[in-house]
Nucleic acid binder design. Structure first.
Length: 915
RNA sequence: GGGCGGUUAGCUCAGUUGGUUAGAGCGUCUGCCUUACAAGCAGAAGGUCAUCCGUUCGAGCCGGAUACCGCCCACCA
């Protein structure tokens, strides 16, 4: 009838079970009780491009720890899950998938991915928008399902009944409504400007999506002859192919070298077009030759110059990165091919004056690494400055607290320099921009559905917008759109503003900043009260994880191998705010060992509990059940055990507070370390060891069951503290404790069980005395090479209280230190080893120890003490120290000196005895 | 070009208002299969806190400079 508990904890035998139970019982649906404090958080929705990676796992672990903690504090917790359609990323993945299906034979080749993407894009256009979107939805179902399964398996305590997707019908309605409002308010406009164009993705991208990369390049000096043949002006450029689109050369008006030629005409080499020389303040006379070629259609600065001087904009590069008709003989060439050809031709014409090495930063598409091209294009933009002010004030006034604090400044700097946002994308997967344009009168109609006729001229020919919105436009609405906005739902009223948002630094501007602006605009309140920025997970060598490097740690795989709890704990204990995490299998292994330790502590307790006579066991159960659900103190026991119980409960009370303080400050590493150290090195190493004889003995009806009750209550309290970090193993063990088999879940119990009244400084001090004695005895024994000998000891003190303490705990001391006997003496010992200044001990043994080794050890000890003593004495002789240092510091230093003196005396005595 | 972070034990990292002898995990060494746990127990060794200067009675911590590493932002052709 006794269930055998395995010695080695096997997480796979329990984790899938509890993961399923938690979901099936809808345990993490908020109760919605307005009496309790509420705590809400909308998950950063993972992209439906694939599956979760270790970074997600860190994020989810951090959030889950906080959510479980808040829930255990009795708050009404909502953690809303969901996913993001990730417009561009998903479209690229699906295209590649289609390409792969079409060209399976390429698998394994280095260039396969690129080829599949190209082919996929071609096939996408061939199959048309409707069919392609069907494929995307299919992909979304698959990927979204996979993500949900992963999250369930990892035990994330979200409310699945409120799951959302950014392209759900209701969510999309919110997106369209926001677009319409912003358009009406004049914050969204359409216009032809220079945008970043990715030729490979075939769409415009925002400034944020461009990654600047330092590259070694060249500066080419090209001669532009005067039209009348009287000479030339030399310009310098890093992109010679753009010269085909030049419509002017600009110089600084104050530049003496060129003052005479402003207004003159130049003949553009190769194309023989005539272009003017204009004067513009933008030009830096120091750089290059002080004369700049102006390509309005392919450079934002040149675009600005052109608008000031009314210059023509000539587009010579198309959306594929090829030269257009305007490029004359170079038409159809790829941009880099054209560059080579043009340089050759210039060289041949003797117009390439020189070339010079020049490092430059090129903009690349952050998704596909292709060099992006600034290109003149008609796009939709959103004005950001009108929204930035409120978003700046919200953070400055502390209505949103950003943690760690250094990100606050980064946020504010970015906000102060914010530019308009290009929100249209030439993609299919995403929210179609809800606009129709009348082909007759040009009226722009913003409407979710096709309006049918033009409200202005009643024309029936309406041109629908085919672009979709930047994915971040919709995710910016996440905190309120997921709660039912624009309807004024109960959820929206109860859970907005959310209390917390956690994200990686990489999306602070993409997402964090924009959520703040949109929340303030549409809800008139911040989207979240605190924003915690978490670290990046790197590999053991601090390299970024990437598939190409092959150093990725797959959360599911590693979880299956070592257990979710171990991985979660390894992540949490590494997660110091503001620093990246070096993650390794070794690290996971050591926390798997911790899980095993917890398991065996539980196993030990449960096994011995089952050994008890049934009626005793019933009394133990009754005693634990009688204890209040929270706020309890140790039950009275006989003196030899009472100290351990009082100490344990006192430590529990202290550690509970420390963990709560750490979690409140997002110091996950500190909280995890505290609970780790407490459980292993206090609860197991000392408390369990101390009370072991009591719980391994058979109890009779006349015996008190209070020691057992104290053990069960303290173990249970420890499980509560561990639960947010290690939900699975704690849930399992908790259910194996008396009275819990049929209860729902430890996750719905209170976090802090032990009363603050359990704090007991006297017990802690007394315990510390005993512990020091035991440690010193073990130490002395090992150092003297007596580990295998039968050794006794004498403990001595002139303090009656200390002697009494030793007497009460004589058996415990002997057992823990492995001593044969313990004599307790009033007074001093010759050659004793000091525990404190009023407490000393010495070993008693028969074996002759090696005097030489002993002398060497003592001499080293003596030197150390001398050095310490000299330092302290010097400090205490320093008048300014005595005058200026606070009194308690001086007193402490004096005490320290006294202790050192005693120890020093002892060592000298011992040395003398050795002769 | 602007801004930020890091440099502490062999490795990975903590160190919260400046205050005794700077900590942990892993690794190493010694002794233990002690009836919860060898993924364990009991011990040990190992650091001029990157360098220099300063403030202070007192600096790993505060200020300045230098070196190396890393990150972010930026319309220098």
């Amino acid at each position: 009838m006794q269930t055998e508990i395995p010695k080695i904890y096997s997480p796979e035998s329990i984790e899938p079970y509890w993961a399923r139970v938690w979901v099936e019982k809808e345990l993490y649906r908020p109760v919605g009780d307005s009496v309790c404090k509420r705590f809400s958080l909308a998950i950063p929705p993972p992209n439906v491009t694939g599956s979760l990676h270790i970074g997600h796992m860190l994020e989810h672990t951090e959030i889950d720890i906080l959510m479980r903690w808040h829930r255990m504090r009795g708050e009404d917790v909502l953690w809303l899950p969901g996913t993001d359609h990730a417009s561009i990323a998903t479209q690229m993945v699906v295209e590649q998938e289609i390409g792969r299906e079409a060209l399976p034979e390429l698998a394994g080749r280095a260039s396969a991915t690129a080829a599949w993407r190209r082919e996929g894009r071609r096939l996408r256009i061939e199959m048309g928008r409707k069919k392609f979107l069907e494929r995307c939805w299919q992909w979304k179902e698959q990927s979204g399902g996979r993500i949900r399964k992963q999250m369930e398996r990892l035990g994330t305590s979200v409310d699945w009944t409120r799951e959302r997707f950014t392209m759900d019908a209701e969510y999309s309605r919110a997106v369209f409504q926001v677009f319409a409002r912003l358009y009406k308010d004049g914050l969204i406009y359409r216009g032809t400007y220079i945008v970043n164009w990715c030729p490979r993705c075939g769409t415009a991208v925002s400034d944020l999506e461009v990654a600047h990369e330092e590259r070694a390049g060249k500066l080419w000096y090209i001669r532009y002859p005067f039209e009348d043949g009287t000479g030339y002006v030399t310009v310098a450029t890093t992109r010679p192919e753009t010269m085909l689109g030049d419509t002017a050369v600009a110089v600084n008006p104050s530049d003496e070298r060129y003052r005479q030629v402003v207004g003159s005409k130049l003949g553009l080499p190769l194309l023989k077009r005539v272009i003017p020389i204009v004067a513009d303040e933008f030009v830096d006379p120091e750089f290059g030759t002080g004369a700049v070629k102006v390509t309005p259609a392919h450079d934002p600065n040149d675009f600005a110059i052109a608008s000031r001087h009314n210059l023509r904009q000539l587009k010579i590069l198309d959306e594929e990165g090829r030269m257009t008709e305007a490029a004359g003989p170079y038409q159809g060439l790829d941009r880099y091919k054209a560059r080579e050809r043009i340089l050759d031709d210039l060289r041949a014409a003797g117009l390439l004056e020189r070339e010079q090495d020049h490092d430059l930063s090129v903009g690349t598409c952050s998704r596909c690494k292709t060099v992006v091209e600034p290109i003149l294009s008609k796009q939709w933009f959103m004005k950001m400055q009108p929204l930035a002010g409120a978003a700046i004030r919200a953070v400055e006034e502390g209505r949103i607290r950003i943690v760690p604090e250094n990100y606050r400044k980064i946020y504010l700097d970015w906000m102060h320099n914010i530019h308009d946002w290009c929100i249209s994308r030439q993609l299919w997967w995403g929210h179609r921009i809800p606009v129709w344009t009348c082909r007759h009168c040009g009226e722009v109609i913003v409407s979710e559905e096709s309006p049918g006729t033009c409200p202005k001229c009643a024309g029936r020919s309406l041109q629908p917008e085919t672009d979709v919105l930047d994915t971040w436009f919709s995710s910016a609405l996440w905190p309120f759109a997921t709660l039912g906005w624009p309807e004024n739902t109960d959820d929206l009223r109860r859970y907005y503003p959310t209390d917390l948002m956690i994200m990686g630094f990489d999306i602070l501007f993409f997402w964090g900043a924009r959520m703040i602006m949109m929340g303030l605009k549409f809800m008139d309140d911040v989207p979240f009260r605190e924003l915690y920025i978490h670290a990046l997970v790197r590999d053991a060598e601090r390299q970024k994880m990437s598939k190409t490097k092959g150093n990725v740690i797959d959360p599911l795989e590693v979880t299956e191998q070592y257990g979710t709890d171990a991985v979660r704990f390894a992540l949490a204990i590494s997660a110091a705010p503001g620093t990246d995490i070096a993650f390794s299998y070794d690290k996971i292994k050591s926390y798997r060992a911790f899980a095993n330790k917890i398991w065996n502590a539980g196993r030990f307790i449960v096994m011995n509990l089952e050994q008890l006579a049934p009626e005793v066991r019933d009394r133990v159960s009754a005693a634990t059940q009688a204890a209040p659900k929270d706020g309890f103190e140790p039950l009275p026991t006989e003196p030899a055990l009472a100290l351990a119980d009082q100490w344990m409960f006192s430590r529990l009370a202290a550690v509970t507070t420390e963990i709560e303080e750490a979690l409140a400050g997002y110091r996950f590493h500190e909280a995890a370390y505290k609970v780790y150290h407490f459980f292993w090195h206090e609860f197991c190493d000392w408390y369990l060891e101390w009370i072991k004889p009591e719980i391994t003995r058979a109890l009779g009806p006349e015996d008190s069951c209070n020691p057992w009750a104290n053990l069960l209550l303290s173990f249970e309290s420890a499980l509560h503290l561990l639960h947010p970090f290690m939900p699975f193993i704690t849930e399992e063990l908790w259910h194996r404790l008396p009275n819990h088999a049929d209860e729902v879940s430890i996750s719905l119990r209170s976090f802090a069980m032990v009363s603050e009244r359990a704090a007991n400084p006297t017990a802690e001090e007394e315990f510390e005395n005993i512990r020091s004695l035991v440690v010193a005895a073990r130490n002395a024994r090992a150092e003297s090479g007596l580990q295998k000998e039968a050794v006794g000891a004498r403990a001595a003190s002139e303090d009656a209280a200390v002697l009494e303490l030793c007497n009460v705990h004589r058996q415990t001391i002997q057992r823990l230190a492995g001593l044969e006997s313990l004599e307790i003496v009033s007074g001093r010992l010759e050659g004793g080893i000091p525990i404190t200044s009023a407490f000393e001990f010495q070993l008693v043994y028969e074996k002759q120890v090696d005097d030489e080794a002993e002398r060497a050890r003592l001499t080293k000890e003596k030197e150390k003490l001398e050095a310490g003593l000299a330092r302290v004495k010097k400090q205490l002789e320093n008048r300014s120290f005595l005058d200026r240092a606070p009194e308690d510091v001086v007193r402490k230093t004096e005490n320290h000196r006294a202790e050192l003196e005693v120890q020093f005396q002892k060592v000298v005595e011992s040395l003398e005895r050795l002769g």
